[in-house]
Design a protein around this nucleic acid. Structure first.
Lengths: 137, 137
DNA sequence: CCTTTACAAAGAATTATTGTTATTTAATAA
DNA sequence: TTATTAAATAACAATAATTCTTTGTAAAGG
């Protein structure tokens, strides 16, 4: 995996400990955390870190195409370092958000999109329901 | 179209002018307005109406399955009186939100969903891009 | 009628997010 | 290295969307 430092520098961003921490965290998780969660997770190891900086950092990252924002209907946004358009599942019981990889879907959507009077730039599919774990109970 | 009064009553809701106004508005538009817009639209004709009541009314309606909440990434939620799961397009230029009717998609999603370790209750597909009008310019 | 209950308005409170400012820090040039 | 400078940060103020609380009102049931 490419060095975080190098990636930030390539995007023209000044490399700071806070930015490294946020980007590394997002790259190493599949949980799609929100700003609050990111802050709470990083704060112990980075005592000099503020929530506003997390927000601002995420905003930069989003503008520069390093992360994407994901809103699944909760009051706060989640963030994902995987930039490829991909569907998500949201468990209506435990709230977990997972990635779904479905090449077929994307292809079909592309085909259908061509029939529309609409120029698709990006798409978002969210499936709401019960995850394996919550269905077990 | 069924009487609004009757529908509200069937849901066990007390029928009030505010509730009638909100539900009628949502039924007669395809714009997917947010709470603020609903309030501003209805307020002139219903001077005794408050934004908080609009929020509470929408919340009741949602619980009872009369409207669905739609979040397309804006800070505020939009509302739709069409309850059937259906995809939406969001124009990244003018911000307009439109319905898409694609039976095929829903069918395919259902089929794919069966292959997942996930029990799909409802799905949401949003296509972001340029609408016909904005592409013209 | 009178009591109970549901509803509404008003505005306070909360939550997520963004703006402001003084201070600190990273990149760059000397 | 060190000095310079432009950008980033922390702290906290401010805003926007939404929810909560209180209090008054109207309708339904006895």
């Amino acid at each position: 995996m490419k060095e975080t430092t190098q990636i930030l520098r390539e995007k023209g961003l000044k490399v700071t400990p806070q930015r490294i921490a946020v980007y590394n965290m997002l790259r190493s998780t599949t949980q799609h955390p929100n700003a609050e969660t990111i802050y709470k997770t990083l704060e112990p190891a980075n005592p000099t870190m503020s929530l506003a900086t997390v927000y601002k950092t995420l905003d930069y990252f989003k503008q520069l195409g390093l992360v994407q924002e994901l809103n699944v209907g909760e009051p706060s946004s989640r963030y994902d370092a995987v930039m490829k358009c991909h569907p998500h599942t949201v468990c209506t019981v435990c709230g977990c958000v997972r990635d779904l990889d479905m090449e077929e879907l994307t292809e079909l959507h592309k085909k259908l999109a061509q029939q529309l009077d609409f120029e698709v730039e990006c798409e978002q599919l969210i499936l709401y329901g019960k995850c394996a774990g919550c269905r077990g109970n």
